[in-house]
Amino acid sequence: MTETPSWTAFIKAAEIAGPPRPSLAWAKAKRTQMKVFDDRVEIGSWTLKHSDVTSATLYQTQSGIKNRVFEIATPDQTVQINFNPGTSPEGHLPYPIQTAPFPKGLAVFRIIFWLFIAAIITAAIFT
């Protein structure tokens, strides 16, 4: 019999510690399902036991365009997770989740980056 997770979400995850920041690790990030079980979280081939978690932090913007990065830390591994809009791990994990402000510089960087990409696409279409 196969164990059924209590909650799943499609995510992008990378091994990064500390506040969210631009990193090439995000370019190589796992795009997979995060599965929450009674005793662990599985993210692709990574397994994070609930009993090993030392901290869980949800970095999020306070206003404007919503940016959210969730970090789970154990003594051996720290994983940052980017959820699809409208998805949140809150209420699905057996440990407290601290909230922290999303770094403003990174939020501005993301807006400028996407405006730049939109400008390139627009120029390509209309030239």
Rank of each mutant, 00 (worst) to 15 (best):
M1K: 11
T4K: 11
P5R: 01
A9K: 00
K12M: 00
A13D: 03
A13R: 01
E15F: 00
E15L: 01
I16Y: 10
I16P: 01
A17K: 01
G18N: 08
P22F: 06
A25I: 00
W26Q: 02
W26F: 00
A29I: 07
T32M: 05
T32G: 03
M34H: 02
M34V: 01
K35C: 12
D38V: 13
D38F: 05
D39K: 15
R40D: 10
R40N: 12
S45I: 09
S45E: 09
W46F: 04
D52P: 11
T54G: 07
A56D: 09
T57C: 08
Q60I: 12
Q60V: 14
Q60R: 15
Q62P: 11
Q62S: 15
N67F: 11
V69P: 06
A73L: 09
P75Q: 01
P75Y: 01
Q77H: 08
V79K: 03
N82Q: 05
F83W: 10
F83G: 00
P85T: 01
P85Q: 05
G86W: 04
T87S: 10
S88H: 09
E90F: 14
E90K: 03
E90Y: 13
P94F: 02
Y95K: 08
Y95T: 13
Y95E: 00
Y95I: 07
P96L: 06
I97G: 02
F102S: 03
P103R: 11
V108D: 03
I111F: 01
I112K: 08
W114F: 06
I117E: 13
I117Y: 02
I117V: 15
A119V: 09
A119Y: 08
A119S: 11
I120Y: 12
T122I: 09
A123F: 15
I125R: 10
F126A: 04
F126C: 06
